[in-house]
């Protein structure tokens, strides 16, 4: 896709612009303040940078919804691999291109943007790798549950997609760290599965969260959602095929 036209690179330029704007806004918000919600401005900036760099893995979109809506799910089922493997491998391929043309340049530009891109500690980096893997598992499971919801409700994807996007951005902590929300909302929001998507790995990376507790919570959601997803898939399989085939 990228090889077809250099204009695709503009998409990444737009992402960089968005990141720069958010960093500037955080600096303004934190001006003349010390720590807020246990986070210092440097941590928030690193958090925001990483959320921009890892935007795709922190909010997995496999393309299942579109495949269902286009009626192409049956062709996927005829491929000699599992449905999850088929969608995940395709998604990973997309990420690789995005990583090369967007994430890596963002990382390299971080010092110019005045952001320290390094993790809080070596152990934070190690835990972060595991946490990111769990975030992807949770994300894929949620994406498949979302696909099942489309097939069960037999509704169009635009409406659900808008809702999902808005809710995930708010509850996952991808835009604003949950710890910065008022009235201690972040404390209970991080217990939701959405918190396992972005908030947990980013907190671990920036050293703003309790790594073992966050990892345990992510592992719980990964297991619970995978099991639930398998069950939902089994129950709704026929309906999905009739809807999306």
């Amino acid at each position: 896709m990228l090889g077809e036209n250099p204009l695709f690179l503009l998409t990444y330029l737009l992402r960089l612009l968005r990141l720069a704007a958010l960093l500037a806004i955080w600096r303004a918000v934190f001006a003349a303040r010390g720590q807020v919600g246990g986070m210092a401005v440097d941590q928030v900036l690193t958090y925001t940078l990483l959320a921009g760099i890892l935007a795709e893995p922190l909010n997995c979109r496999t393309g299942l919804d579109r495949s269902l809506w286009e009626g192409a799910i049956v062709t996927r089922m005829l491929q000699p691999m599992g449905l999850v493997a088929s969608f995940v491998s395709e998604m990973a391929g997309r990420w690789a291109v995005g990583f090369a043309f967007c994430s890596l340049p963002m990382l390299l530009l971080a010092p110019l943007l005045g952001v320290d891109p390094w993790p809080a500690s070596a152990s934070a980096a190690a835990w972060f790798g595991l946490s990111l893997a769990l975030a992807i598992v949770v994300g894929v499971a949620l994406d498949f549950l979302y696909g099942a919801a489309i097939a069960v409700l037999k509704t169009d994807i635009w409406m659900l997609d808008g809702m999902r996007h808005a809710v995930a951005l708010l509850l996952s902590g991808a835009v604003a760290p949950l710890a910065l929300l008022p009235w201690g909302m972040g404390r209970w929001m991080q217990w939701l599965p959405f918190g396992a998507l972005a908030s947990a790995p980013l907190q671990i990376y920036t050293g703003a969260g309790d790594a073992p507790m966050l990892l345990a919570l992510q592992a719980f959601w990964a297991l619970a959602l995978c099991l639930f997803g398998r069950w939902v898939w089994r129950v709704t399989r026929e309906r999905m095929v009739s809807y999306g085939g």
Partner: peptide
């Protein structure tokens, strides 16, 4: 949800 994030930050800060 689309405005809640900024609204909550404005409240907090």
């Amino acid at each position: 949800a689309s405005v809640a994030g900024v609204l909550l930050l404005a409240q907090r800060f």
